[in-house]
Design a binder for these strands. Structure first.
Lengths: 165, 165
DNA sequence: GACATAATGTTATATTATAACATAACTCGA
DNA sequence: TCGAGTTATGTTATAATATAACATTATGTC
């Protein structure tokens, strides 16, 4: 079994999510510091909301979480979208196109195109970082210069297959 | 060079688009007839608008095209979305998630997961039908049952690289 | 033709995302 | 430390995408 597979199934296995969160947060802080980018409190707030979630969240879910904190402020959409743009720009989160949602990157800094396995039952997402050699080859054949790739596989994870029937 | 590549680059090469359209339309009619599905005039209208386009179109672009025909009727969004749902269900068109847009399938009936190369300059899309073996293997490793896959590669096609600089 | 079903039409509204501009906060050199 | 330039945040309004719910019409079948 490949390293990728070991890596990939984090979302589909029990693990210490608390620790996972702490590590990703401090990793993000270090990464931003190294790049002279500012992980401001708003940006961190959005990042932490995503970290705390086991599922991808829509921008308005994040917005609701921010407004739910019982305080007086009423956050508006652009604030969330701007924080999301920043976090995506730094590779700290990914956008799941087929769900209009966002999720933390399991391995920021490691700049390889991500691929996602999305369970339509439990809504969890596993991030892989395999590379599709045949697709890369086909693109090269056509002289197509790749910028960005979206690979999102929807289905049912092993756990949900057991339970769901 | 593989069959896929010969197939795939249709969108990025000169070809007889008229003939291409005619063939896809009659193919769609035959396919629906065989399946006892009704390619009604509304559905065909939407399909033809997509066929006539060299680019993916948003639902509201299609809507505008339908309302532009100088006649009195004012079509509303659900009509378009329902036709799109039908056409997707029959595999006659694809949805491009990263653009919220729709495009005709170059090879309906051939039920293999499609992959797209999307030029961000000219907005044209090449449909490939390669299969990502490593991803399929990774999914199998995890016991993940694949339902549907979205593979969308954005970049710049060969033609636009020449012109654009 | 009468019934059941499928498709279309209509109205209203939900969901996702951004434009445009005002204010505040940080940075850095004088 | 002041202030000019820049970056980030806040605010308001609205654009773009998509669906719910229900009324009407068309189609197929007996």
């Amino acid at each position: 079994m490949s390293r990728k597979a070991q890596h990939s199934d984090i979302a589909f296995r029990k693990h210490d999510h608390r620790r996972c969160q702490r590590e990703l947060l401090s990793g993000a802080q270090q990464l931003c510091a190294r790049r002279k980018q500012r992980l401001t409190s708003r940006r961190r707030q959005v990042f932490e909301i995503l970290l705390a979630s086991h599922q991808p969240l829509g921008a308005y879910d994040i917005l609701a979480a921010m407004n739910r904190v019982g305080n007086l402020e009423r956050i508006a959409p652009p604030i969330v979208y701007r924080a999301l743009d920043f976090l995506m720009g730094e590779g700290l989160i990914h956008r799941i196109e087929s769900k209009n949602a966002f999720i933390t990157c399991v391995d920021p800094g490691h700049r390889c195109a991500a691929q996602f396995l999305i369970c339509r039952d439990c809504d969890q997402v596993a991030e892989l970082e395999t590379e599709d050699a045949s697709l890369v080859a086909a693109a090269a054949d056509l002289g197509f210069a790749v910028d960005h790739s979206v690979v999102e596989i929807t289905g049912v994870c092993a756990e949900c297959q057991k339970h769901g029937g």
